[in-house]
């Protein structure tokens, strides 16, 4: 029996976090989960505490990358075989987790990514966002030869080797595309699994319209620099 950990990064998610946990407990009761409370300013922490949830409480805000990495370190420390990243904001549906980890259980992949753009079902994001995602996808293909359609998807699962790698090295600011490139350069087998996502139910996304141009420039630069400095190991 494989030990499975679901890592749930949460920043100011007092309205969504318990629903997310219940969704997981209902759909995949054999797995453990850990919420990473990234020094939320609202009452996320007390909500988690009252519920008796399994959570880590970061004393200083680290951002999504540093938060998720804490989850990978936890997974490594407690010897988990599979770690799953799952957003705490209610966008992800735990019903797809079983499908997501199947290729890992069969040993067919090292990394799986829950992708909205395989069957093009569920919430598809705005046209502008999809344009940006397609651009980053093409850039990653160019840099490491691996084609991933939904590069910004925060729903992903990795096996033991990648847990150890991500516990050691993980991008800090906008880590989703960078983690794919890093895995690609390590020659990890990456597979996309079709999932549906919901539009977020409360709170605000970490990427608003004004920041998205800055986001694109920053991520593209970071990807190119990563390719130059990491190389293929």
């Amino acid at each position: 029996m494989l030990k499975i950990l679901i890592i749930i990064p949460a920043y100011n998610e007092q309205d969504n976090i318990i629903r997310t946990i219940q969704d997981i407990e209902k759909n995949i009761p054999e797995a453990n989960y850990i919420v990473i409370n990234d020094c939320s300013k609202d009452s996320t922490r007390s909500v988690l505490c009252d519920y008796g949830a399994n959570y880590l409480d970061l004393p200083v805000n680290l951002g999504i990358g540093g938060g998720v990495q804490t989850g990978y370190r936890y997974a490594l420390e407690y010897g988990y075989d599979i770690a799953i990243q799952f957003d705490g904001d209610g966008q992800h549906d735990a019903a797809y987790i079983k499908e997501l980890i199947k290729p890992l259980e069969m040993g067919q992949a090292d990394v799986t990514i829950g992708s909205r753009f395989i069957n093009n079902e569920g919430f598809q994001s705005s046209a502008m966002r999809r344009l940006g995602i397609n651009f980053l996808s093409a850039l990653i293909k160019l840099l490491c030869g691996i084609r991933v359609k939904d590069v910004t998807s925060g729903m992903r699962a990795v096996n033991r080797n990648m847990i150890a790698e991500f516990a050691e090295n993980y991008a800090q600011d906008y880590p989703e595309p960078e983690a794919i490139l890093a895995a690609g350069l390590l020659k990890a087998r990456i597979m996309e699994v079709p999932v549906q996502m919901r539009e977020r139910q409360g709170g605000t996304s970490s990427i608003n319209a004004l920041r998205s141009v800055y986001y694109m420039i920053k991520v593209s630069t970071a990807l190119i620099i990563n390719r130059m400095t990491l190389g293929k190991r």
């Binding site: 990473i36 959570y55 880590l56 409480d57 970061l58 004393p59 200083v60 680290l62 540093g66 990495q69 804490t70 370190r73 936890y74 420390e77 800090q172």
Partner: peptide, 14 residues
């Protein structure tokens, strides 16, 4: 270094 320290602190606190 600070990032690693903060992460270790959170793991210990748990």
């Amino acid at each position: 270094r600070l990032k690693r320290l903060i992460q270790s602190d959170a793991l210990l606190e748990k």
